[in-house]
């Protein structure tokens, strides 16, 4: 219905800057809002966890309105539990729709994970088995989300610490099939790739060579912590509490060399530093994006990732 959607666009056009530029962005923290608004460095975009803005009103919405009036925005859900064994929580999906309608984000993303079971919310991104029943269910759930929101979402690859013995396919195959069947885009978290590859004993570049990069519309970068597994080997934890690791920057450089510039988010959710520290990380991503934009040539995709 073109006439209706045209009218809706007009009514809802409260914010400019809808599309997300292929630059660095940062995860928005309440304590950084003033610094970001006053900074001479105008960051490419900001991203919020949808759940933090599902309250009815008050300071969070006041702050996000001020940010949204000045920057493009991505909405990143952490609580929809797309990998759930059971049906999606319709009330929560409606809350997500409300946030999306309120702030008109350029991109909306969620995780390949579950967090709710039997009316309990576990506040973590828990792993799914990579088997056919799970694939079918995740695709159904994404169809439902995209239908309710009336737009495409991006699905993020997880960081994992274990695997299920009844998985029947690789993570990259699983994700590629989801994207193909549901039409969703992908959010490539390169720190998650590095964390999972280390934990599951495969090469991150192998994973990236199998990942459908042509579906990637956003990249996430974050810091990780190091622990050890049951056999005393390194077990990396997706901690989001420190700068991005050099090994992850290296992979990022390679991926951007392959794909060309892509919106890139720096996530820092625990032990959050002052804004200038986060800005420094964003500038490092901007630098790679600019350098690679200069020498990126169409047709070079996938050529060097092997």
């Amino acid at each position: 219905m073109p006439a209706t959607s045209g009218a809706k666009t007009h009514i809802n056009a409260r914010f400019e800057d809808k599309s997300i530029p292929p630059r660095a962005g940062a995860g928005l923290k309440a304590e950084h809002v003033d610094a970001i608004l006053q900074d001479d460095y105008h960051i490419g975009f900001l991203e919020v966890h949808a759940e933090n803005y599902m309250g009815d009103g008050g300071a969070p919405h006041r702050a996000l309105n001020a940010i949204r009036q000045n920057f493009p925005l991505c909405v990143h859900g952490v609580g929809l539990s797309i990998g759930s064994e059971k049906a999606l929580d319709k009330v929560h999906l409606d809350r997500l729709k409300k946030v999306v309608e309120r702030y008109e984000p350029g991109l909306v993303s969620e995780h390949l994970a579950w967090s709710t079971h039997d009316n309990s919310y576990y506040n973590d991104l828990l792993p799914v088995p990579y088997d056919q029943p799970t694939l079918d269910r995740v695709c159904d759930h994404i169809d439902q989300v995209q239908e309710v929101l009336g737009r495409k979402i991006l699905l993020e690859n997880p960081s994992t610490y274990l695997q299920f013995d009844h998985s029947t396919m690789s993570e990259t195959d699983f994700i590629a099939q989801i994207a193909r069947r549901s039409g969703c885009g992908l959010l490539l978290d390169i720190n998650n790739v590095f964390v999972s590859a280390t934990n599951q004993h495969y090469r991150p570049l192998t994973y990236l060579s199998e990942f459908p990069l042509e579906k990637v519309e956003e990249i996430h970068l974050a810091g990780h912590a190091t622990d050890t597994d049951d056999d005393g080997r390194p077990l990396l934890i997706d901690a989001h509490d420190r700068p991005v690791d050099d090994a992850v920057w290296k992979l990022y450089d390679i991926v951007i060399g392959q794909m060309g510039p892509v919106p890139t988010l720096i996530e820092w959710d625990n032990d959050v530093p002052d804004w200038p520290v986060l800005r420094r990380e964003a500038l490092r991503a901007d630098e790679i994006l600019e350098r690679r934009a200069g020498n990126y040539m169409l047709g070079s995709r996938h050529a060097a990732v092997c």
Binding site: Q163, D165, H201, D229, D231
Partner: peptide, 17 residues
């Protein structure tokens, strides 16, 4: 039904979650 790579023990891995 949960394990580390190659069927390795996963107690510490599960402890992360």
């Amino acid at each position: 039904g949960v394990m580390g790579p190659g069927g390795a023990k996963a107690d510490k891995r599960f402890d992360v979650y």
